[in-house]
Amino acid sequence: MRIAILGGTGNIGRGFALRWGQKHDIIIGSRNAEKAEAFAGEYKEILEDRGYEAHITGTDNKTATENAEIVVIAIRYNRLQSLIDLITPVIDEQIFISVVVPMEKNLCYISPNAKPRTVPISSDQFNTDYFCFTMPEAGSAAQEIEKMLPAGTELVSAFHTVPAKKLANLELELNYDIGVCGSSEYSKKLVFELVEDISDMRPLDTGPLEASAMLESLTPLIINISARNNMKDVSIKFI
């Protein structure tokens, strides 16, 4: 499959490229095409040194989307609107995967009926050094993306609990469970296959796209647990 990774020069993008580049054609997307090309060359060299015939290229986000069958959105939540506006003219039956998490440091949980806003917390009353899921008005980042994309575009939400550093470390087998949310069984099946392409990962159906908030909120939880308990790159396994 031809997989575009928008934000492919970031930490999580690196891991996806190195893991999927062993079996699929990867297009690294970035706001800067030259930067994407440089990172693509680096990823390709790493895989070729390990004996893989890697097909990894780099370009701007719009071109990457245009030439892909599957598009992974791996950017910051606050950059979503500008990215979707950019790529909308070239969207044509691609399947999208969102790994986006709306979270901030030192913010309180935002209810579905409230617009996101900073809530100051007195540091002399609470230890505020933590990350918190900030629920968008639509309910989740995935649902926000769904509203931005052209009607009928298939979108799946997944990979929110994958530690980026371990994903990029090809020496590791990743015995993790990956929740997958989506309203199309066909798209979910494709994402299940991509999960299974990565070492020992196991995909689990966690419901329709509307259930994505539960997955997205796990990311700040995992980060907080890691930071407060001297654990590195924590993930999830259901036993």
Rank of each mutant, 00 (worst) to 15 (best):
W20A: 03
W20V: 06
W20F: 10
W20G: 04
W20Y: 06
W20I: 04
G21C: 05
G21Q: 05
Q22G: 02
K23E: 09
K23F: 12
H24K: 10
D25M: 03
I26N: 03
I27R: 04
I28C: 05
I28N: 09
G29P: 10
S30K: 09
R31T: 12
N32A: 05
A33I: 03
A33S: 13
A33E: 13
A33T: 02
E34N: 13
E34Q: 15
K35P: 06
K35L: 12
A36I: 09
A36F: 09
F39Q: 13
F39C: 11
F39P: 00
G41W: 07
E42I: 11
E42D: 13
Y43H: 13
Y43A: 11
I46E: 12
E48A: 01
R50I: 00
R50F: 02
R50W: 02
G51A: 07
Y52P: 02
Y52A: 03
A54V: 05
H55I: 09
H55W: 01
I56P: 07
T57G: 05
G58N: 04
D60G: 10
D60Q: 07
N61A: 09
N61I: 07
T63G: 00
T63H: 01
A64T: 08
A64M: 06
T65F: 11
N67H: 11
N67C: 01
A68Y: 08
I70Y: 06
V72D: 02
V72K: 04
I73W: 07
I75Q: 08
I75G: 06
Y77C: 06
N78R: 12
L80T: 14
Q81W: 02
Q81I: 14
S82W: 03
S82K: 13
I84S: 10
I84T: 05
I84P: 06
L86N: 13
I87L: 05
V90A: 07
D92E: 13
E93A: 12
E93K: 15
Q94H: 11
Q94N: 09
I95L: 15
F96N: 04
S98T: 14
S98V: 06
S98F: 04
V99H: 01
V100T: 07
M103H: 02
M103A: 12
E104S: 08
K105P: 04
K105D: 03
N106P: 05
N106T: 10
Y109G: 01
N113R: 09
N113G: 03
A114L: 12
K115S: 12
R117V: 09
R117M: 13
V119I: 15
V119T: 15
V119R: 11
P120H: 10
S122G: 04
Q125F: 13
N127Q: 14
T128S: 15
D129P: 12
C132K: 07
C132N: 11
F133L: 04
F133R: 01
E137I: 04
A138Y: 00
A138G: 00
G139D: 00
G139Q: 00
G139K: 00
G139T: 00
S140T: 02
A141W: 02
A142K: 00
Q143N: 04
I145Y: 01
I145Q: 01
I145L: 08
K147M: 02
K147W: 00
P150N: 07
P150W: 06
G152Q: 04
T153M: 10
E154T: 15
